[in-house]
């Protein structure tokens, strides 16, 4: 399945890119996507995750065509 991964703000700088398009075979959680995309074994504590622009948890399961985003705490307003 094809998954788009996006990174924002300080996390984008840490990862070194704004996005990835990955071809993966599942079933996989968003945490699995993070591991495969970055090669890191875990997510930092304060990282927020969104699946198709909705907040989700580490164990949320992905489907073909999904967009997964990882980012630090939000600071708008």
């Amino acid at each position: 399945m094809m998954i788009t991964v996006k990174y924002f703000a300080s996390l984008r700088e840490e990862v070194g890119r704004a996005s990835d398009i990955l071809e993966l075979s599942g079933p996989l959680s968003v945490l699995d996507v993070w591991k495969q995309a970055t090669g890191q074994s875990a997510l930092m504590n304060n990282v927020l995750i969104a699946l198709n622009q909705e907040y989700c948890e580490e164990d949320t399961v992905i489907s073909d065509g999904d967009e997964v985003a990882f980012f630090p705490p939000v600071t708008g307003g």
């Binding site: 924002f8 703000a9 300080s10 969104a50 985003a69 980012f71 939000v74 600071t75 708008g76 307003g77």
Partner: peptide
């Protein structure tokens, strides 16, 4: 709610 949920970041 905007400050806690809307995905904006300040540098």
């Amino acid at each position: 709610e905007l400050k806690h949920r809307a995905p904006f970041w300040k540098q």
